[in-house]
Amino acid sequence: MTTALITGATAGIGAAFARRLAADGHNLVLVARDTKRLREQATELHDRHGIEAEVLTADLATEGGIETVEKRLSDPRHPVDLLVNNAGFGNKGRYLEVSMADELTMLKVHCEAVLRLTSAAVPGMRERGRGGVVNVASVAAFLPRGTYGASKAWVVQFTQGAAKDLTGSGVRLMALCPGFVRTEFHQRAGMGTDNIPSWMWLDADKVVAAALADLARGKQVSIPDARYKTLLGAAKLVPRGLLGGITSKTGRKYGPQ
């Protein structure tokens, strides 16, 4: 059986990836900060699907945490065939309302960790002639949304560029760009969500199903819902200045994942 490593695996989109991949028969390496929660998740997935689920406690906001996952990804004795870079978070507040320390932590998790973990996983995949990387970004990547949007835009651009360089290698890279997903994301950031229309919410399991289908098709960017594809198409017609004002007013309060 193949092995998938998922960061931010205990909740939201990461947990949905774990459920789906375990059901499909993949062994897992589950990465997050909460060891107790990881062990409970690993036991449940093993008992339900008969797969092996390895627990790897790591905080990707720290140098040691990134190094721990890099080491596991580059271990030739236990190859990883699919990497899902899902770990991430939001900061509530406008530019200059969020501390510089928090802004830099976001860049470390969203950009540095994604770069380093992808770079640790891909060489072995290329040697074996197969493998995949899903880097979880956001529709915020396509909107003027401060550090969060900028970091997710970097994820999309990096993924597309790396995918082009790896053409013909058997390794697929894809940026996943969902909209609002019902997860713990907003609660953890202290963001209110009461005014978000119900039709804008996506289900994490459906997002993952669409993402894996797009990865199998060889897509480099996945926007896993027709509603958001339509919204992003319409956003291209709105002047950037006006769009920036709208997204700054609403996005900083709610922060799509």
Rank of each mutant, 00 (worst) to 15 (best):
185 F>C: 10
116 R>M: 03
82 L>R: 03
101 A>Q: 11
162 A>P: 12
77 R>Q: 13
148 Y>N: 06
124 G>M: 10
101 A>Y: 03
138 S>P: 01
96 L>K: 12
186 H>K: 13
115 L>E: 11
97 E>W: 10
149 G>A: 07
172 R>V: 12
95 Y>R: 15
126 R>F: 06
122 V>H: 06
103 E>V: 07
98 V>F: 09
189 A>R: 07
168 G>D: 08
168 G>L: 05
95 Y>H: 15
130 R>H: 13
84 V>F: 00
132 G>W: 03
128 R>W: 08
121 A>V: 00
130 R>E: 11
156 V>N: 01
88 G>W: 00
185 F>K: 10
162 A>Q: 15
115 L>Q: 11
184 E>M: 12
122 V>N: 06
188 R>G: 13
93 G>T: 04
134 V>H: 04
171 V>M: 07
109 V>K: 02
177 C>I: 10
135 N>Q: 02
161 G>E: 14
116 R>F: 04
138 S>L: 05
120 A>S: 10
133 V>D: 00
158 F>C: 11
162 A>I: 14
101 A>H: 11
85 N>A: 12
83 L>H: 00
123 P>V: 04
99 S>E: 02
105 T>W: 02
122 V>S: 07
137 A>W: 01
162 A>W: 10
123 P>C: 01
186 H>M: 15
152 K>P: 06
173 L>N: 06
147 T>L: 13
177 C>N: 06
75 D>N: 08
151 S>Y: 06
169 S>G: 04
185 F>V: 09
89 F>K: 05
142 F>Y: 13
191 M>G: 14
143 L>C: 09
131 G>Y: 03
190 G>L: 09
